[in-house]
């Protein structure tokens, strides 16, 4: 086992534990913090895979923006969960069974794929992955159309947000 594998296993275990804590902790603020820990774990896994750009984007977008938004929402919705109530739905056993079945069938299907057992090869260090990514996002043969559609969607969300936030009583 190489050192990178040990780091990977430690980080993966931490990420999964944090993900379980998100749904199991009693206080919502601590759940939000556990969510941040899980997201950091995913960022570290991106970094281990040699994709620094995705690792940093993960931190900027998910921790810098979304997690702070979630914390803000938690601050404004205090006491939405009382400590006495059970955290489980009555039918949680069926749900657990269903998800376990889905997970095992997904693993089974994936195990028939060639790439499942492949050992990851190191990327060619002479190729700058961000440049490749940037070019493919602006290349008409690549992902230019989906990229532009996403930007239109974001613009629509921005305009919608400004419209909702406006004070309608004034005019």
């Amino acid at each position: 086992m190489t050192a990178v594998q040990i780091v990977f296993l430690a980080v993966a275990a931490l990420t999964l534990a944090a993900a379980v804590m998100v749904v199991s902790l009693r206080r919502m603020m601590q759940s939000a913090l556990a969510l941040i820990l899980a997201l950091v774990g995913v960022a570290v896994i991106f970094a281990l895979l040699g994709s620094g750009f995705f690792a940093v984007s993960q931190v900027v977008v998910y921790i810098g923006a979304i997690a702070i938004l979630i914390i803000f929402a938690v601050m404004l919705t205090q006491n939405s969960m009382s400590p006495e109530h059970s955290q489980m739905n009555p039918g949680f056993l069926y749900a657990a069974l269903g998800s376990a079945l889905l997970f095992s069938s997904l693993v089974f299907i994936l195990s028939m794929w060639v790439g499942f057992y492949a050992i990851p090869v190191n990327l060619d260090p002479s190729v700058d992955t961000i440049t490749v990514l940037g070019l493919s996002l602006t290349d008409p043969q690549g992902f230019a159309l989906p990229f532009e559609i996403v930007s239109v969607l974001l613009l629509a969300a921005l305009i919608g947000g400004i419209y909702i936030a406006r004070d309608h009583h004034r005019d």
Partner: peptide
């Protein structure tokens, strides 16, 4: 981008 991300952690 990394510098911006580090700033976000300080805000947190």
């Amino acid at each position: 981008l990394y510098v911006v991300a580090a700033g976000a952690i300080g805000e947190l």
